[in-house]
Amino acid sequence: MADIFLNFPAFCLGSQQRTVADAAADGDLLSTADALTAAGFNQHCHCDAHETAYDLAKGALDDMLTSYPETRQRLPDIDVILYVTCLPLNGNHGNVDEFAVSRDVKHLMDFPASRLQADFDMDRAFVMGLNQQACTGMLGSIRVAAALLRSEPDLQQALCITADRFPPGAVYEQAYNLISDGGAACIVSTTPGGYRLLGAHHITNGAMATASDEETAGFYFNYSHRLITELCANAGITPAEVNWIVPQNTNRKAWRILASVLRFDFERILMPTIGSVGHCISGDNIINLKTVAGADQIKVGDTLLMPMAGFGLNWSCLLLEKVAD
């Protein structure tokens, strides 16, 4: 089976920053500011009135091109674009008001993935849009990309990208987590570099698709523990043998409990952006991965888990090994 590598993590956040206290004062939270601050959240980023989810996708790709100049030569050779949205409405760049006037559904099918292909001259790439995985969508796209590259030898590299913004008037809190609008991207390829994909696992409990925040939190520990232990067992290791966990930005208290259950040192859980970014929907793992890579915390040969939980209810995790700086 061909080795698959994840490389060039990049991201873009909504242009407006706001403290937890300000978000609470604006009536955009469900919990108190003190409760969210105690959980590790300090501020979040949200879009202004004119900023779209597609702007966030373009911003993430611009960040990739700026952070890794070599990707300027790689983008024209991308074979497939896997474009992920958590909220289905972000999978359409068209004007819903124009549909209401014309009743023409083409206004509901202005797909951002096609725009991205054209705007960044990825002419040889075909596009696939993915959703209904909530916050696990980015990890799901990486798994789909790996399967495509392994099953179709003519395909060499895939762009995985996610972008979501909450609609105007939305509460910026879900399941006791402070939310940010944002996008994230990476390249998955057969070319060695970055991180080797050692395994992937995903669990869905559709019976809990409409779970309340309290029910979601209650199921989080059991399913996250099962997800991680099953993935590690498939790789012939225990969670404690993994060097690092690079998770979603979720309540620090929850991760202390889960770390104890997994018998994993909490100090080896890396979520450096929880205070400054909050939970950026599907992008947290990639955002944290880029941030810790910049701080040189993960060494060549280290292994890491990237777990994510989302509505649906879904739990997803990747097991990676760093192969190059």
Rank of each mutant, 00 (worst) to 15 (best):
D104W: 13
A23N: 03
F126L: 10
F166I: 07
L139K: 01
D302Y: 03
A118G: 10
V242A: 07
V171T: 15
C186I: 11
I179S: 00
T204P: 00
T273R: 01
L6T: 08
R256P: 06
Y54P: 00
M1S: 09
F126Q: 12
T238G: 06
L30Q: 05
A235I: 06
L313T: 09
L319M: 08
G275Q: 04
C317I: 03
S15D: 07
I4Y: 01
L30D: 04
L304Q: 03
I179W: 02
D296C: 09
V127D: 11
V188A: 07
I237Y: 02
G183Y: 01
E241G: 05
A185W: 01
Q117G: 14
R268I: 13
L82C: 04
D77P: 06
D79N: 09
H93N: 12
A184S: 15
G301M: 11
D325E: 10
E51T: 12
Q297K: 08
L148E: 07
D62P: 07
Y68I: 10
Y54D: 01
F221A: 13
D63G: 10
L198R: 05
A113V: 09
C186K: 03
G312N: 02
C47Q: 00
D26S: 13
F11T: 04
A113S: 15
G236L: 09
G236Q: 09
A185C: 14
F266E: 13
T204Q: 02
G199Q: 04
N249W: 00
R252F: 14
L155Y: 08
V127E: 11
D97L: 12
F221V: 11
M109G: 13
L149D: 02
G301Y: 07
V171G: 09
T162H: 15
S276K: 07
